[in-house]
Amino acid sequence: MMVELPQARSFPAADGYGDSKTSIRAMERADLPAVARLFNKVFRQQDRDAGDDLIRYLEAVFFGSPHYAPEHGSVVHDSSDGRIDSALLSVPMEFTVHGRRMVARLLCAFMVDGRAGAAGAARLARTVRAARQEMCFSDSSSPVSADHCTAGGGIILPIQSLEWRRAFRPLAAAALLAGRQMPLLASGPVIGAFGWVDRALRRWRSSLKAEFALGCRTEAASLDAFFECAVPMLERFSVRPSWSKCEFDWLASVASRNRSLGTLQSRIVRSDDGRAIGAFLFFGKAKRVAHVLNVLCETGRELDVTTAMFASLDEDGYAVAAGMGQPFLMNAILRQRWLSFRHRGYFCMVTRHAEIKEAALGNDIYIGGLASESWSRLLTDF
């Protein structure tokens, strides 16, 4: 049910959104039908009213965070006739920066209604210049957006801008990845036929099979168990998601709605003595793609944990595993055979804090997976 709120306040100058007469304001729930229609027009080339499913999803994602407040949420620009002609959707996420906590903004979608919204879009873009922000980031920026980011004092994280792919069953993997443009290739009969050939290939080329992780075992785990294991392993990074239990549960809940990517699952990697040395979180569709969101481990156990992860996903029958590049894991990931990379979109960050920028450029940051847009249905559905 859509709830109409009181009239939105204007952002004061201290917030970086102009004076009290500005046409830039916090997005309200009452704006959701118009914003959803703008989303359809910009990203789906369909100039029509959005369905209830999209509107409800926008409400859940952009108003549901435990850290939501108007100053940390999405913003819209009203044209002179009161119509929303551009919008910047964002999700607040709490981060720990050298021991102190702050609310950052994950920028998810920048929408402009053609030429009519150009002036408003320019004003919205100026609000996310580095000098005005605690911390904003986006993991799926276009080249144009990346240029705006760096022009405004932001930085690009090159490794996090990459997606790694490890094929276990190469023909099925190629068909599934090509199926994004040609859906017929990803159909059940085609994947089934390629599966027969892949079985022969795996007998012929043993390198297709993931290496067994000596001294480790992997076990299925609940999301609560993943949380308990992963949070202490984040402490090696100076800048990291804070992940209170409340926020983690909310993120896992909205991520679980993305059924097009499969089922949200977690695994814990243990050493032979039973100690947890790592954990990973992923979406999985049987015999198809395992989309890895987050991988955490004890310092120095990166190779053990990633080797165990790939062995587990191969044993489960996935055709291919894919995930965001992380600097601390790259040396271990690169040991895999049948590995490839693609540019997944620019990972951009803007902040007025030199310590955050230094940590990001020095690879002393953990970001991505649940602490990014990788789980969003806006990238895969509607």
Score class of each variant (00 low, 15 high):
Met2Leu: 13
Glu4Gly: 00
Pro6Trp: 03
Ser10Leu: 08
Ser10Thr: 15
Ala13Val: 12
Asp15Glu: 13
Asp19Pro: 00
Lys21Glu: 09
Arg25Ile: 06
Ala26Asp: 00
Ala26Gln: 08
Met27Ser: 03
Ala30Asp: 11
Asp31Glu: 13
Arg37Leu: 00
Leu38Arg: 00
Val42Ser: 02
Phe43Gln: 14
Phe43Pro: 01
Asp52Phe: 03
Asp53Pro: 00
Tyr57Asn: 01
Phe63Ser: 09
Pro66Tyr: 13
Tyr68Thr: 08
Ala69Ile: 01
Glu71Gly: 06
Gly73His: 07
Ser74Leu: 13
Asp78Met: 14
Arg83Tyr: 05
Ser86Leu: 09
Leu89Asp: 09
Ser90Pro: 01
Ser90Val: 12
Ser90Asp: 04
Glu94His: 13
Arg100Phe: 09
Arg101Asp: 14
Arg101Gln: 14
Val103His: 07
Val103Ile: 15
Cys108Leu: 06
Gly117Trp: 06
Leu124Glu: 10
Arg132Thr: 13
Arg132Asn: 13
Cys136Thr: 15
Asp139Pro: 12
Ser142His: 09
Gly154Leu: 06
Ile155Gly: 01
Gln160Asn: 12
Phe168His: 11
Phe168Arg: 02
Ala175Glu: 02
Gln181Gly: 12
Gln181Tyr: 10
Pro183Phe: 08
Ala193Pro: 00
Phe194Gly: 07
Asp198Ile: 12
Ala200Thr: 08
Arg203Val: 12
Trp204Glu: 05
Trp204Gly: 04
Arg205Leu: 14
Ser207Leu: 03
Leu208Cys: 01
Lys209Met: 12
Ala210Gly: 01
Leu214His: 03
Arg217Asp: 13
Glu219Cys: 00
Ser222Tyr: 09
Asp224Ile: 01
Phe227Ile: 08
Glu228Tyr: 02
Glu228Trp: 00
Arg236Pro: 04
Ser238Trp: 06
Ser238Gln: 14
Ser238Asn: 14
Val239Asn: 05
Ser242Ile: 00
Cys246His: 06
Glu247Asn: 07
Phe248Pro: 01
Asp249Val: 01
Ala252Met: 13
Ala255Ser: 04
Ser256Met: 04
Asn258Cys: 15
Ser260Ala: 13
Leu261His: 08
Leu264Lys: 10
Arg270Met: 06
Arg270Val: 00
Asp273Gln: 08
Arg275Pro: 00
Gly284Trp: 07
Ala286Asn: 10
Arg288Cys: 11
Ala290Asn: 07
Val292Ser: 11
Val295Asp: 09
Leu296Ser: 08
Glu298Arg: 13
Thr299Arg: 12
Arg301Ser: 15
Glu302Leu: 04
Thr306Cys: 11
Ala311Gly: 11
Leu313Tyr: 06
Asp314Arg: 01
Glu315Ala: 14
Gly317Ala: 03
Tyr318Glu: 02
Val320Gly: 02
Pro327Gly: 02
Met330Glu: 15
Met330Leu: 15
Ala332Pro: 11
Ile333Asn: 00
Leu334Glu: 15
Gln336Pro: 02
Trp338Cys: 13
Leu339His: 04
Ser340Gly: 15
His343Ser: 04
Ala360Lys: 09
Asp364Lys: 04
Tyr366Val: 07
Gly368Asp: 07
Gly369Ala: 05
Leu370Met: 12
Ser374Cys: 04
Ser374Phe: 06
Ser376Leu: 14
Ser376Gly: 02
Leu379Lys: 15
Asp381Cys: 10
Asp381Gly: 01
Phe382Thr: 04
Phe382Leu: 10
Phe382Cys: 05
